[in-house]
Design a protein around this nucleic acid. Sequence first.
DNA 1: TAAAAAAATTGATAAATATCAAAAAATTAG
DNA 2: CTAATTTTTTGATATTTATCAATTTTTTTA
Lengths: 223, 223
Amino acid sequence: MTCFVENEANIFKSLSADELHYLVDKKQQIKYNVRETIIKQNTSSTFVICMRNGLAKVFIEGEKGKNLIVKLIGKGDFISGGGLFNGNVQHFTISALTPVTCCLIDSGKLSNLFSENNNFAIELLRNHTKQNNYLLSKMVSLTQKYMPGRVAETLLYLKNDIYKESKFTVDLSRLELAEMSNMTKESLVRILQQFKESHIIKTQGSEIEIMDEYSLIQVSKNG
Amino acid sequence: MTCFVENEANIFKSLSADELHYLVDKKQQIKYNVRETIIKQNTSSTFVICMRNGLAKVFIEGEKGKNLIVKLIGKGDFISGGGLFNGNVQHFTISALTPVTCCLIDSGKLSNLFSENNNFAIELLRNHTKQNNYLLSKMVSLTQKYMPGRVAETLLYLKNDIYKESKFTVDLSRLELAEMSNMTKESLVRILQQFKESHIIKTQGSEIEIMDEYSLIQVSKNG
DNA sequence: TAAAAAAATTGATAAATATCAAAAAATTAG
DNA sequence: CTAATTTTTTGATATTTATCAATTTTTTTA
């Protein structure tokens, strides 16, 4: 089942081949172009998403057109839009940063598997618990850290969780990086500039290289 | 089973009397005094909590001694400390604002019920989904609203979700109200003062009365 | 109940961050 | 490939919010 990556974090690892088949109808593997919306906040839908390929941003559309990017999702990530077993209304928007292929899984099918496969329910709960903990720590850093600390965190997140290289080409604009770090694009640019002057990073357009990760970690712990 | 309130939000509503009995050993109903810690962040424990009586604060202990109160929990509320099916490490601290009685339920027992009771797993997931959505909206208001909007939100939360009266005696200090609203205690006091001058609220010590709820809602929507 | 400690309030000032405007650079469209 | 549009960057300034210090009020303790 090509949609499902083999890794420990994958919630589908507890399912048998038959059960996976039941979940995913091949025809529901959908492609999205860059900037297309995959899930739209405040609309109703009954599917959950498993990313097969590409990168997407998960964000909340706040008031006054201000977005808050909560996290990025890529290959193998599973996400429900906040409506799972809870009225089907999506609580955030997901849109493609690169071309995306993903599976849309009907959420009703999930619960049908619970009785035959106890572990699957546990995996789903674990997934939600992790998401919860992630949101808590994100909330703390967005509210208790100064701007340089938040930008450092964003850069480390991109390096460690998304691109897994010290040098990477971001698929996000400066505005989007700002929306991840809870500040204006102007402030983000100025802080990147500071980091460059301190030789912590190098940038050239959308290419970012982390030169001095140790310092970046220190800054992210809030200097 | 006295611990479980009859209300729609209760995750235990799907359990039979026998199943409830299995979950809760009467001897595990514990009492806590004001200011006592019920769950401590970063420690390991395998129980989840169902509140029987009293009021407690759920908060994250950030860096530099700065706390962020995420929410309050009272009668009938169920909460796991962020370690559920996820390593048992607690991701936040819960402490009593008033004398508290609660049940400590061993988390291992939860999963044992999944196979016999499909709906119970769904209820747990719904609970987590809701918590998730709550955190998302809290995150947005903490980051995108000015201080008066955040204080207005805190006051409305206390009125609508906790005390259910327009006039109430808060069990939180001014510092704790500030920790709920992500600001310093001085700022909180000043904003309460502004609200008093605009005749939106009246206060006398820890007694707060909401006089003009409409205005408060307007402010919370960010003026 | 008086003294001590803690919490709440007020004022003055400093620091962090946003806004607005303009210029430079990069992308996109024709 | 060039003009038009969008994005990024820089600078000057305004706003929001925190900090520090002092005072008043409330609560706790002996």
